[in-house]
């Protein structure tokens, strides 16, 4: 049960990463590897502030700001300097590695003794339930874990509603159109380059929060924690799409979150069954590879049948 709660919580935290990837990958059609750096950047900033006794909520917001800065830089490289999107992401990610080490001053900052959102949750659990453990449908679970899960859930729901609302505003609709058909929206007076920068800033900002929350949840920030996160996020988005089977905005956002949770649960189960943790990244990469290639293969096999129907 503790394992399940843990997997759910991490899945929810990383759903912010998935939402960020949804923006870059689905709205703008860019595989934005900046997130590998910006998730660590968010975690690093947050951890350093928390160790220095800054209010953990502010520290988390600072993680968001860090992500926004990283995304803005990538966006400017793409839009103003016309550098290939993939390469822009690689440049910023690589640069961020050094920046993160500077921010942290060492490669790992432990947070276990510091006042963070997790300690807040622990205290809240104590005062609500008056007990470090509570009976949940026959299972004894720690109130700390339970309250943490609920708090993270509340944050994610807020983030999803906020994102949905944003993408239905005039500004957000135009941002989606900048990804869908840049030529058309430029002819309607939108500075596509600027919208692309804003989109990447928002995307990486969400990833920065994911990093900040993850650091507080697992109790440390680490310079290596971002490696492969972009693939993780892609996997979540792709799973989400196959779950909801739809490109409609609301379902897509829900799907990204559901995909992230489901993917984390699958990973937890696989690890429990004896998957070597060292193989995790390889398995994730293979999974995304399969998810990208299989639909196309299936379509190719269908085509000879579909063609006469289509041409009639």
């Amino acid at each position: 049960m503790t394992l399940l709660l843990g997997a759910l919580t991490i899945g929810l935290i990383l759903s912010l990463l998935a939402l960020g990837i949804y923006i870059s990958y689905r709205v703008f059609d860019i595989a934005d590897i900046t997130v590998d750096g910006s998730i660590t950047f968010g975690a690093a900033i947050c951890a350093v502030l928390i160790v220095n006794r800054v209010n953990p909520l502010l520290a988390t917001l600072a993680g968001f700001a860090g992500g926004v800065v990283a995304g803005t830089v990538t966006g400017i490289l793409q839009a103003k300097f016309k550098i290939n999107p993939l390469l822009s992401g690689i440049l910023v990610m690589t640069g961020l590695y050094s920046v993160n080490l500077h921010v942290m001053g060492k490669s790992n900052i432990p947070l276990l003794s510091a006042e963070s959102l997790t300690t807040w949750a622990e205290r809240m659990g104590q005062s609500w339930f008056g007990n470090p453990e509570v009976n949940l449908g026959g299972w004894m679970v720690s109130t700390r874990d339970l309250v943490t899960l609920l708090a993270v859930l509340a944050m994610i729901v807020t983030a999803c509603l906020g994102l949905y609302w944003f993408f239905r505003t005039e500004l957000g609709t135009a941002m989606r159109a900048s990804g869908d058909n840049p030529q058309m929206i430029r002819a309607l007076g939108v500075n596509v380059e600027r919208y692309r920068i804003m989109g990447l800033a928002l995307s990486n900002g969400l990833v920065g929060i994911a990093g900040a929350l993850l650091a507080q949840y697992q109790g440390f920030a680490d310079a290596q924690m971002g490696i492969g996160m972009v693939v993780w996020g892609l996997a979540s988005v792709i799973i989400g799409e196959s779950l909801t089977g739809s490109r409609s905005l609301g379902l897509a956002i829900f799907g990204a979150v559901a995909g992230s949770i489901l993917f984390r649960l699958l990973v937890a189960i696989a690890l429990r069954w004896g998957l070597n943790p060292n193989d995790l990244k390889l398995v994730t990469a293979l999974f995304v590879f399969a998810a990208l290639v299989l639909p196309r293969l299936l379509q190719q096999r269908k085509r000879p049948v579909a063609a006469p129907l289509g041409s009639s």
Binding site: F166, R168, T169, E170, L171, G172, T173, A174, L188, G189, V190
Partner: peptide, 9 residues
């Protein structure tokens, strides 16, 4: 050609 804000589209 006009400003796009945070009003519902």
């Amino acid at each position: 050609g006009q400003a796009r804000g945070l009003g519902w589209a």
